[in-house]
Simulated assay, not measured.
Amino acid sequence: MPDPKYLKPWHGLPRDKIHWNPTVDENVCIGCGTCVTGCSRLVYRFDFEKNKSVVYDPLNCLVGCTTCANICPANAISFPSLETVDSLIAQATVHHAIEDDLIGRKAELFNPAEEHQNKHKFIVDKKIQAGPKNLLVYLKPESANDKLKEFVPGQYANVCSPDKNWLCRSYSVCNIPDKEESYVQLYVRLEDGGRFTGWMFSEMKEGDVLNLKGPFGAFRYQSAEDKSLLFIARGAGFAPIKSIIEQILEADPQRNITLYWGVTDTDDFCLLKPIKEWLSIDTNFHCVLTARVVSSDFAPPVGVVFHQGTVYNALANSYFEDFDLVNMDAYLAGPSKTIKEVINVLIIKGFPKDRIFVDSFGLK
């Protein structure tokens, strides 16, 4: 029988509703017993007659753990895809349960010596809802001494609500904050059931003061000047891509750039204005937009190719013969599932894997 202490809910979800446990291929198992003796949760028993390991209490298994499969010398143990766990963690209720658990144990888990010192106070200068699920937030530093130039295009900041006992949320900066543009622009996507994005949409007001920590992240422009550039973004992954493209065009207005940006619904194209500007100043700039759902009043900007479907399918159906792949770099940002699919299609197309740069949010 499963041990009751292992049957407690997993971040608010009933353990018996989660399909996560090992499977032993009896034809491959060599009977070494490593999995049986190595699992402290007593998931396994040993069949001394057959000299085989047996999964006896699958619900004892820790969700997400694959240690036994990793150390099995015969590769006889398999688990469901880790996407099973990814899909659970993506649920707002699970994320909130993890957050509440962390906050409840802060005295036990927090080390004051590790607290980041690079904090900034920013005022919500403008809050613009651009479509049903998209928010553009403009933050100005409360103090003139705040060093906006610390933010490098492609990096992100941790945004904290001043009056909610929640963890900070990470958002890529989607502009180049400097003396001329003395604000930080954030692109916020409303998450279904999300408490933080729900607060930003419904409760956060212009004039509110937010705490920002950062900048963080190593995703940034790192290509030689003679390289052609391919940018691929999904959803709010366009934010860091936008800031990097602006950085490049500021120095080289005729750079050879191709952009793919995919969203769920054409109502999510909340930042088309800069794309129109790029098309007007750079004759070597090309753009492909994709969306699964097309609003009746949507019209792509002049010069933009539109594909109904996913950004992955648009890339898979594209001909890359006109691209000099040896002299081209690719920059990717968006959800991990999309990024993995895009990397696969790029490699199939012949793109060098070492010339593909991925936002840290993209892969888990």
Rank of each mutant, 00 (worst) to 15 (best):
N158A: 15
P58S: 00
D265E: 14
D57N: 06
S87V: 10
D329A: 08
N158I: 15
V288K: 02
L139E: 00
W199Y: 15
S161M: 15
H11L: 13
M204A: 11
P2D: 12
F201T: 02
V326N: 05
P274I: 03
K119E: 11
C39G: 00
V184H: 05
W10Q: 00
I18H: 09
V55I: 07
H116W: 14
I71P: 04
L135N: 01
N118G: 04
E206S: 06
F122P: 00
A92Y: 03
R292I: 05
F231H: 07
W166K: 06
L249Q: 11
K164C: 06
S202Q: 13
A76R: 04
A251C: 02
W20E: 10
V54I: 15
R234K: 12
H19E: 14
E83K: 14
G303Q: 07
G194C: 04
N327P: 08
L62S: 08
R105F: 01
F219N: 03
R355E: 00
L13M: 13
T283F: 12
F219W: 06
H116T: 13
N118Y: 11
E83G: 09
R220S: 08
C68R: 13
C72M: 06
L212R: 05
V288F: 07
A90V: 01
A224P: 09
F122I: 04
H120R: 10
T264S: 08
N75C: 07
A299S: 13
T258A: 01
T258M: 07
A92N: 07
P240K: 13
R355K: 14
I103S: 05
S182V: 00
K276D: 10
S170P: 05
Y260T: 02
K106V: 10
L325Y: 00
P274G: 02
G12S: 06
E246S: 15
R292Y: 06
C68H: 12
F357P: 08
V28C: 04
K242D: 02
L139P: 00
E250G: 12
E142P: 01
L363C: 05
V24W: 02
W199H: 10
Y221C: 04
V263N: 01
A157H: 08
V345Y: 08
V302N: 07
G214F: 09
T283E: 12
F110P: 01
L332R: 07
A74I: 09
E250H: 14
F79P: 07
T310S: 15
E83R: 15
P240I: 15
L271H: 03
Y187V: 00
I348C: 03
V55A: 01
A144Y: 12
E203P: 02
S40W: 02
L230W: 13
V342H: 06
A144M: 11
S143F: 09
S172P: 05
V55N: 00
L135T: 03
S78V: 15
F231K: 06
D86R: 15
A92S: 15
A97D: 14
L88T: 04
D324K: 14
N327I: 08
A90N: 06
N27P: 01
L315T: 02
K276V: 11
G193Q: 01
K5F: 11
L186S: 00
N211C: 07
S182M: 00
V188L: 10
D163Q: 13
I77T: 09
